[in-house]
Amino acid sequence: MDSPCRYEIRLKGHLAARWATRFDGMTLTSQDDGTTLIEGPVVDQAALHGLLHTLRDIGVPLISVTQLDPIVTPSFDNPPPKHSLT
């Protein structure tokens, strides 16, 4: 849990694009269903909680928090899974 992961956070309402300055390195996209998706890398759990605090403080209703695939840095010790090559 302490390695960088990508997260997807869904909020109620369309958040203006300028909020991206508050969520450094994350992308904000407005969805057709009236929600906003914030997506991007989160260094660790502490950073995730910091992000959630920011959302709490601006009072925007939170719908879901999802962990996407962990970021795997390919290396000799950690080769990419075979099946992804085929």
């Binding site: 203006a16 601006i58 925007v60």
Partner: peptide
């Protein structure tokens, strides 16, 4: 409007 209420109103 679908915008986040506060964004909309503060604007």
């Amino acid at each position: 409007d679908d915008r986040y209420i506060v964004d909309y109103l503060v604007d």
